[in-house]
């Protein structure tokens, strides 16, 4: 069986020129790097604007407030990856990665709530210290993956509409709040100073849930089985 694991790369006639090329690139880039006099960075500006941002951690402030638009797009990228994955194929779980046993199931039952707790803690304290929506979301995703590989029977029956709503929860909340700012502050994504930290936390929680769901669904590798059967039913009636 292990023979399938190996894919020896064939001898490639391009090997030498390509290696020469990339080594040249490496030398060139390193040389430039040495010659650059590094500019100061934006630490001071961020620090001065930090009190108004609603977050104590500068990274979070930059991520959600100063460059919130980037983060919004990034959430969209994540959404896009699940959209693409679903459009490409149907899910097929790599079953029996771990042999499901009663001990495992009880372990999982214990672990899952703990992980969810950790995830939300990470999200919550992300405004002050390291952590935030992405870190929390990935813990949630890990929980999801654990559920998936433990073959939880109920998991298969989640209707895809719930999943889909879960995926868009983050981006939609983000967009809605950003639009809400148009009414209050006349500017897209200019959070009102009074409730800025609450808004940020709200966005982070919504995003974390979406991120977790999306990543877990990406692990499954495609759209749920019933998704295609709906389409097929439609097709047959048309």
């Amino acid at each position: 069986m292990s023979s399938h694991n190996t894919y020896p790369e064939r001898k490639n006639s391009l090997a030498l020129p390509v290696i020469l090329l990339t080594s040249g690139l490496f030398l060139l880039l390193s040389y430039t790097l040495l010659s650059i006099e590094q500019a100061g960075g934006l630490a001071a500006q961020v620090q001065s604007a930090l009190p108004k941002s609603g977050a104590e951690s500068p990274v979070t402030a930059v991520l959600l407030n100063f460059r919130g638009y980037d983060t919004l797009l990034e959430v969209m990228v994540l959404f896009l990856s699940i959209l693409g994955a679903w459009s490409i194929g149907r899910a097929s779980l790599p079953q029996a990665l771990i042999k499901t046993s009663t001990i495992q199931i009880s372990c999982v039952r214990l672990l899952i709530p703990l992980m969810i707790l950790i995830a939300f803690y990470l999200v919550w304290q992300g405004t002050r210290f390291a952590g935030g929506a992405f870190q929390g979301g990935s813990i949630l995703a890990a929980a999801g993956v654990l559920l998936l590989v433990s073959d939880f029977p109920k998991l298969i029956q989640i209707h895809s509409i719930h999943l889909r709503l879960g995926f868009i929860l983050g981006p939609v909340t983000f967009i809605l709040i950003a639009f809400y700012c148009i009414f209050t502050n006349k500017t897209f994504m200019a959070y009102p100073a009074a409730i800025v930290s609450q808004l940020l936390l709200f966005i982070e929680i919504a995003c974390a849930i979406s991120i977790g769901l999306t990543l877990a669904a990406l692990f499954a590798g495609g759209r749920p089985a019933q998704e295609s059967s709906i389409a097929q039913r439609k097709g047959s009636t048309l």
Binding site: S57, V59, T60, P94, F134, L215
Partner: peptide, 26 residues
């Protein structure tokens, strides 16, 4: 860069690895 470290541990290693493995299995 603790934020990045957390993200890397959780996303980069914690999730990308399983993703690769799942794809590899399939």
């Amino acid at each position: 860069a603790p934020d990045v470290a957390l993200a890397e541990a959780a996303l980069g290693a914690g999730l990308t690895g399983p993703l690769f493995l799942a794809a590899y299995r399939r």
